[in-house]
C-alpha cells in the first residue's frame, strides 16, 4: 500500500528542518514546508521509501516552488530510493546541495540488508566498497549497487 507522505517541520537556528517519510506519489503534499516560505531549508530524506512517476513530478514542482521563494536547500540523509531518482531524473535535486546519502549493503551470509550513511562533508570521496560488518552475524557485507555509478548524480 502506498504509505502516505509524512512531513515534520521544525524551526532550528540553522533554518527550517523538514523530515520526510513514506512514499512520494500523486497524493503527496508539501504545503507544510512551502507555507513557511523558508530561506534556508534542510530536507531530511532518510524515511522516503518509494517515489512513483507522478510523485517525481510533484517533487519537481515542489523544488521549483521553493526556488521561486528564494530558498537555499540542502538534502540530508537521502534514502536509497532518493538516490535512485537523483541518478535517473536530471533536475531531481534542482539547485539543492546533497550533503549525505544512505548506501545499501547486503550480507552474503545471512541476507541482512542495511543502509549506511555516507556524509560528503566528512568524506568527499567515499569508498563504497570499504568493509562494513553485518549487524546480525558480523560477516563483511557487500555494497548492493554499482559502486562506479551509485553516486553518479554528483558528477551531473
Amino acid at each position: 500500500m502506498a504509505n502516505s507522505l509524512n512531513v515534520k517541520v521544525e524551526k532550528r537556528p540553522s533554518g527550517l528542518w523538514a523530515e520526510l517519510s513514506g512514499d512520494i506519489t500523486e497524493d503527496s503534499e508539501f504545503n507544510a514546508i512551502l507555507s513557511e516560505k523558508p530561506l534556508l531549508l534542510t530536507l531530511d530524506l532518510a524515511g522516503i521509501k518509494r517515489i512513483n512517476s507522478t510523485g517525481v513530478r510533484e517533487w519537481i514542482n515542489f523544488m521549483t516552488a521553493l526556488r521561486k521563494d528564494g530558498a537555499r536547500i540542502n538534502f540530508e540523509r537521502c534514502s536509497v530510493a532518493i538516490v535512485q531518482q537523483l541518478n535517473m531524473i536530471a533536475n531531481f535535486a534542482d539547485r539543492a546541495e546533497v550533503h549525505s546519502v544512505f548506501a545499501p549493503y547486503i550480507c552474503p551470509s545471512c541476507d541482512t540488508e542495511e543502509a549506511k550513511l555516507v556524509d560528503f562533508k566528512a568524506n568527499p570521496t567515499p569508498d563504497l566498497e570499504a568493509p562494513v560488518a553485518c549487524p546480525n552475524c558480523k560477516e563483511t557485507m557487500e555494497f548492493d549497487d554499482l559502486p562506479e555509478s551509485y553516486l553518479a548524480f554528483r558528477q551531473q
Partner: peptide
C-alpha cells in the same frame, strides 16, 4: 522536458 508538466501523467512511467 524529461518530466512532463502537462495535465495527467508525468510521462515517466515507462522509464520507471
Amino acid at each position: 522536458g524529461q518530466v512532463d508538466n502537462k495535465a495527467g501523467g508525468a510521462g515517466l512511467g515507462f522509464y520507471q
